[in-house]
Design a protein around this nucleic acid. Structure first.
Lengths: 148, 148
DNA sequence: TATTGTTATACTCTATAACTATA
DNA sequence: TATAGTTATAGAGTATAACAATA
């Protein structure tokens, strides 16, 4: 099924590439998560990212993260308790609460990202300049694909 | 910090590339997981993969997956109950139990992988042949990086 | 006595249902 | 009456500690 020799681009088997590329991306993600044991559980990290530069209500966060309102309520309560998120009553609607990143929350995001990026940067430095150039092109393409 | 024009390969900022590439891989992984809502929770899927072609004991699985023995005990019990994993007493050591993939477990793995690959293949088909060629090269490099 | 695996208990994150407060 | 959010309760996942069976 898979040709042993590299085929020209035009005859690339898209199914095979899809499987290999998906697997490669998932393995990289897994390694990043495992190596840089984070100070924050994934669902809390995710919420901090959503609040970056954009204050939101708990309901909005629940919709975006596709979890129930009570789940988000607890997650937010935990983040507020840790001082990473600030609560502010909505002046025009007393039912709502505006949530935003605290300076500590912002610092936490930076810290986690720096640790994750370090793992990747170390690996990239051991590659050839040519391989890095290929990955730079691929990054642009993958970013477009992920956003589509 | 980040140059607005594409720099030549030799002057690529490795830190920037590391951050962008890591993010791209994680976003792809996230999309794949979200779009193909799996029939199996992640930790169960992971164990099935570990048993593919290689029967193992519960203790081995706990070590590999970096979870406690009791956790693995429960996960395995669930997989056995669903008929995806078969148990067999070790003939030489009565304390151990050999775990292996059942035919249903094998079919489940194929099914999940097919669904995941389909999402990726659909996206790849909408790219130019040149972009696919870049991704094919990148896949080989990333696979090496993830394994290192 | 050491090792493999399970059971007992507790903590976290998930959910749905019920409740409070505001619109 | 409808909506935003929290509390009540239950169901999985995780863990450590204690136990059973076997080496």
């Amino acid at each position: 099924m898979t040709p042993k020799t590299s085929p020209p681009a035009a005859t690339l088997d898209v199914s095979v590439l899809a499987g290999d590329l998906r697997l490669a991306c998932m393995r990289i993600s897994r390694r990043v998560r495992f190596e840089s044991t984070d100070a924050l559980p994934p669902h809390q990290f995710s919420v901090l990212v959503r609040l970056e530069d954009v204050p939101r209500t708990a309901g909005e966060l629940a919709d975006i993260e596709k979890v129930s309102a009570p789940s988000m309520s607890r997650t937010v309560a935990s983040l507020v308790e840790r001082g990473l998120v600030a609560r502010q009553p909505d002046p025009t609607d007393g039912r709502q609460v505006i949530l935003s990143l605290s300076p500590q929350g912002s610092a936490m995001l930076s810290h986690i990202r720096r640790r994750r990026d370090e793992w990747m940067a170390t690996r990239l430095r051991s590659l050839s300049a040519r391989d890095r150039a290929v990955l730079a092109q691929a990054t642009a393409i993958l970013t477009r694909v992920a956003a589509a």
